[in-house]
Design a protein around this nucleic acid. Structure first.
Ligand SMILES: [Mn+2]
Ligand SMILES: [Mn+2]
Ligand SMILES: [Zn+2]
Ligand SMILES: [Zn+2]
Lengths: 153, 153
DNA sequence: TTTGTTATTGAAAATAGATTTCATTTAGCG
DNA sequence: CGCTAAATGAAATCTATTTTCAATAACAAA
């Protein structure tokens, strides 16, 4: 197999963690999956399935787009990647989840797509009041913050 | 033209406001548009374009699905309806914007789709800190809260 | 009212995105 | 090495959305 990335540069720590995660749950580690894992782990930006496919094919030429969809679905189920909605646009991009465990949200650069995560939304108080006022049983919330990263300003 | 809704029950205040809004900007008030406006204004729930089409056809039989898409795009541009993403699912539903002017968010019932709006997310402090920490120039944020409404619990 | 202009419409075709099917391949295990 | 079930890729299919275009109708002006 022709290799386009050396082992060292191609394989981030995050990708290794994800591989262990998959192995532990009995999923097979195929070349196709590795290519997608490493691609997703290698950047903080959010990308569409097509973009991910284009990038991942540098790691594994034969990779099919279908498998990208299937792998993203798997990674999403395992909470290793997240869908990015970004307001109106770009409804179906994906980004790596970098904060291990627990509740967090995304800060997205509208220019370059760079995604930064943060754990502290401090909405508890607001949501408790909202729950009291409306009678809703609040179960979850989703917050996305959009702006421009330092580089893009 | 056969009428399925009496003028009184068919035409909410909100729909009237929206009509004025369109007229003021030089858009023509066609039967097709009225049907979509009134349908969107008549319920707080979020619905897909297909669902909206099915409902709006009770008001105007000949209405085409294309026009529903076009009218929703228009209403979205004018900030009279909003897209609802609801976490993973239902990426392309729409709901009426009921809070005139200004910043607000949605509280969505995951069972019946009922949408309640609220103006006070109290995120300013959080976002200011986030901006200071990350160097991002924060421009906007999008918050969606999901739960069960009093009826559905 | 009638008329003219032009935005808007609906049907059909085209596009795009995502999923299903299925024969073939391969990871992981003895 | 084989075995076997899981996983893959190509093609077919499905679904949602957009584009095209001739026909219609809103609305302003006469
Ligand atoms: Mn979405
Ligand atoms: Mn939060
Ligand atoms: Zn950026
Ligand atoms: Zn409900």
């Amino acid at each position: 197999m022709k290799r386009f990335f050396s082992k060292k540069e191609g394989m981030s720590t995050l990708a290794k963690i994800w591989e262990d995660h998959l192995r532990a749950r009995g999923y097979r580690l195929t070349k196709a999956r590795r290519a997608v894992l490493e691609t997703m782990a290698s950047e903080t930006g959010h990308r569409t399935p097509e973009e991910i496919h284009r990038q991942a094919r540098w790691r594994y030429r034969k990779l099919g787009l279908v498998t990208v969809y299937r792998t993203l679905a798997l990674l999403e189920r395992l909470n290793l990647v997240q869908r990015v909605h970004q307001g109106k646009m770009r409804c179906h991009s994906f980004a790596a989840v970098r904060l291990e465990k627990g509740h967090h949200h995304q800060l997205i650069c509208r220019t370059c797509g760079h995604v930064e995560e943060f754990p502290d939304c401090a909405l508890d108080r607001t949501l408790r009041k909202l729950q009291a006022r409306t009678g809703f049983a609040i179960e979850s919330h989703h917050l996305e913050v959009v702006g421009q990263c330092p580089k893009c300003q």
